[in-house]
């Protein structure tokens, strides 16, 4: 329970800092902390494969991608007009309402939730068998999706040649 409390505090503090800090690079660092906390929570839930996949994909790839995007867009400069949008109060109210409903539901259904179960013994061989057997179709679809997303991201972010709009502006 103490380990869970520490990991939960790390995760929540990381996500709060990622959302609240003014400097965008600090936000990306705090986001990495939140991802690491979530990966440790996965490990605590006996989901070793998902925990290490989380570290590889999120800490290793997504966080680096976010830092790249920040540096490529000069997003690290704090704007003089503030970092929160004009409608920040409405957004805060919506988020607080969502959390209130979720927390109320969890706390009121706590008696119906399953209690202690023995830790499931899952080997990587079992995961591989499941991926190649029952879940082979989703696996192939994810492969196609990742290829399409990679090509799409490259095409979207590729430097476009100056079109007629920019030429007109130059004149």
């Amino acid at each position: 329970m103490i380990v869970f409390a520490i990991l939960a505090a790390l995760t929540v503090a990381g996500s709060l800092a990622a959302v609240l800090l003014r400097n965008t690079v600090h936000c990306a660092l705090a986001l990495t902390g939140a991802f690491i906390g979530l990966a440790l929570l996965f490990l605590r839930l006996d989901a070793q494969f998902a925990g290490f996949a989380q570290i590889l994909v999120y800490v290793g790839a997504v966080a680096i991608l976010v830092v790249f995007a920040i540096l490529l867009t000069r997003g690290s400069e704090t704007p003089a007009t503030g970092v929160f949008s004009r409608t920040w109060f409405a957004g805060l109210v919506v988020a607080a309402g969502v959390f209130a409903v979720l927390a109320w539901t969890v706390l009121h259904s706590a008696v119906a939730l399953p209690h202690e179960f023995a830790a499931p013994q899952v080997s990587v061989a079992q995961i591989g068998n499941a991926l190649m057997g029952r879940y082979v179709l989703p696996l192939e679809i994810v492969a196609v999706l990742l290829t399409a997303a990679m090509i799409g991201a490259v095409i979207v972010a590729m430097h476009e040649k100056p079109g007629k709009y920019e030429k007109k502006e130059a004149n």
Partner: peptide, 29 residues
């Protein structure tokens, strides 16, 4: 129960993420 604890943490992180998506000006945030 432990499950309720994990669900509460997940709800909190979800609400924080929603607040960030709704209140920040920067598209990356």
């Amino acid at each position: 129960t432990p499950l309720a604890g994990y669900l509460l943490v997940a709800a909190l992180v979800f609400a924080i993420g929603l607040a960030g998506a709704l209140t920040r000006r920067n598209a990356i945030l």
